[in-house]
Design a protein around this nucleic acid. Structure first.
Lengths: 215, 215
DNA sequence: AGACAATGCGAGTCATAGCTCGCAAATTCC
DNA sequence: GGAATTTGCGAGCTATGACTCGCATTGTCT
């Protein structure tokens, strides 16, 4: 007869075996989500795909929402890492090259797991804890803003916040749409797309130098 | 004993009373969706808010999906009407003024019912019949494309389809984000926003004339 | 007025999915 | 080895919500 009921924790896992369980659950969630969609992704199914019992699932995640939210968080962490790296490498380049590199990075970020990204965008209801899907954009905003601030002299912008917001929203929307509509895009298509977006951005940031990156 | 079972139709309503019922159901769906969100919007609740029985609901809509899809269709019809009108009035203006007018039209369209629009974007799963939420964008694409074609000489664009797609996606994303984040925007904010977007677009379409719409 | 069709009703059925609970197996620590 | 604890199990409880069905009311036509 254990004094403290061991079933209460429902929190973090400390031992090795349990961390593996949690990972398996997140992986399974991703797979079931992309295969079946959000509605059909029942906790029972997820647990069984993970090779884990429902009970175990609820030992680590209080509800389905939390489970999906954790997956979103994991996914966003990966993406943000990419973005940060890209921004570091870009610090030394001139504006045109920098913008182009950042657009390319955005495409790469969307190619991490397009199917999953699509589910997040199209099916996961943005409410409650799930609303933090948008945290990613807020972080990105700050990164881009600080970059623009450093380059302030090279660009013709009045309101930095507005410009940043426009840029982030635009690039995200365009990249998303491109990856969704052409999941099998050749490298050529990709480069052409990146060119166009770069032109769009540069025309906005530095309207006087006509930017024509591609021959 | 009626020969043909009258419960089969579950289709269109011909009499006056029934049309009213259908309208009431759509209105109630909109209200419940915006108030409670997609998940909490049960058919029972919708029917009761409409002042109609569940049975009647299912006489006109085979399932919840169809009900929401019908609402989406109605909403999109309104929006498209706005877009068409705007494009007609714009035919005679010069490029800069035309783009500005179209951006303004996009904002107006998003202001028809922002709360509902938001639910569609954030909570309604895009799958099955609901996937046709995107039909609106396809229609818009065609409208914009035909406009650009007429102005082809004034703009420096290689691939018309690509440009159209970029434009539509960009304006829709920016407008959406603006309306969602600043539901109570003053007219001043609105005009400043429209200016920025117009600059972005013009810089892309006609990079050589520096577009500076505002004083 | 009377017959038949269209429309409306809502209690009740049925399926599903989220979640719990009591127990078993594995780990850790002495 | 064995006590204590963490981890895992999965049958089953429960709530909920989509949807049906037999009947009542309203409308139409002659």
């Amino acid at each position: 007869m254990p004094r403290a009921i061991p079933t209460i924790p429902r929190k973090s896992a400390s031992q090795e075996r349990s961390r593996a369980t949690v990972e398996a659950l997140l992986d399974a969630t991703a797979r079931v989500l992309t295969r079946e969609g959000y509605d059909r992704a029942s906790t029972n199914r997820i647990a069984s795909v993970a090779g884990v019992s429902v009970g175990s699932l609820y030992q680590y995640f209080p509800n389905k929402e939390a489970l999906v939210a954790a997956l979103v968080a994991r996914h966003n962490r990966e993406i943000l890492e990419l973005a940060r790296d890209a921004l570091k490498e870009v610090a030394s380049l001139d504006l045109a090259a920098a913008v182009r590199a950042m657009v390319r990075a955005a495409v790469d970020a969307h190619l991490v797991d397009p199917a999953l990204h699509r589910i997040f965008a199209e099916q996961v209801p943005r409410m409650g804890q799930l609303a933090k899907i948008e945290d990613l954009e807020r972080e990105t905003f700050l990164l881009v803003r600080s970059y623009l601030e450093a380059r302030r002299k090279e660009i013709s912008i009045r309101d930095l916040d507005t410009a940043t917001s426009i840029l982030v929203t635009t690039v995200e929307a365009l990249t998303h749409q491109f990856v969704i509509n052409k999941p099998d895009a050749m490298d050529g298509d990709r480069d052409r797309f990146i060119d166009e977006v770069t032109r769009l951005i540069l025309g906005y940031l530095a309207p006087h130098r006509t930017a024509k990156p591609r021959k």
